[in-house]
């Protein structure tokens, strides 16, 4: 069989069919790039350039919150005299301005604060370590003197340690505190307690 006057490549075999006729004339060196392959590679290259030029700025744009530097934690006056604290955890509210994107909003947080046996102040974050609901002190009749989370019945002891076999996986976070002029200052962000 003779194919005359056809100039195309058999791309799979990388075999040149020449105008002079005949099939499978010479197997070309596999390393050598044919004209068609060259065009395809260049096309892919230009396409890749266009695609990445469009998507990369967008992806960086979308990922910006992740790459923002971590904000520090400020200490906020709770207007609570340290003398008023007792052994019993007390709900202490404190407000501060918080930046939320393009807004700056007054935000109120609260902490469960008490003095332990050594007179040390403990300020627990109320945010349950399971799924972020708020825990309440002593709010469950079946579990007195514990922090109770109403969402999935998570429990914590008074020292914030999670009760085993309840949903939470870690003890309650703690706020940093400072005492200035007898008033309690709490940090805006709570820290994890290594259990």
């Amino acid at each position: 069989m003779i194919i005359a006057s056809i100039d195309y490549f058999d791309y799979d075999e990388n075999v040149l069919l020449t105008k002079t006729g005949g099939i499978g004339l010479e197997k070309q060196d596999k390393q050598q790039v044919t004209r068609r392959q060259f065009l395809v590679y260049t096309l892919m290259g230009v396409g890749g350039f266009m695609l990445s030029s469009i998507t990369l700025p967008n992806l960086r744009f979308a990922a910006d919150p992740v790459l923002q530097p971590k904000e520090g934690s400020d200490l906020i006056n709770t207007n609570l005299k340290v003398d008023e604290l007792t052994n019993e955890p007390k709900k202490v509210e404190f407000s501060f301005k918080q930046k939320d994107g393009w807004y700056e909003k007054e935000t109120t947080q609260f902490a469960w604060v008490y003095k332990d046996e050594n007179g040390e102040i403990i300020a627990h974050s109320p945010v349950c370590k399971h799924l972020g609901c708020n825990v309440e002190w002593n709010s469950s009749e079946n579990h007195p003197n514990m922090y109770f989370c109403p969402c999935h019945k998570g429990l914590y002891y008074k020292d914030g340690e999670n009760v085993p076999n309840t949903p939470p996986r870690a003890p309650l976070d703690r706020y940093d505190y400072e005492i200035r002029d007898g008033y309690l200052y709490l940090s805006t962000r709570a820290k994890e307690v290594k259990g």
Binding site: H130, L131, H152, K153, N162, P164, N165, T166, P167, P168, R169
Partner: peptide, 12 residues
């Protein structure tokens, strides 16, 4: 499901 003890806590 996340309320059950073998699907939460350490088994979260």
């Amino acid at each position: 499901l996340l309320k059950y003890s073998y699907a939460s806590g350490d088994y979260n």
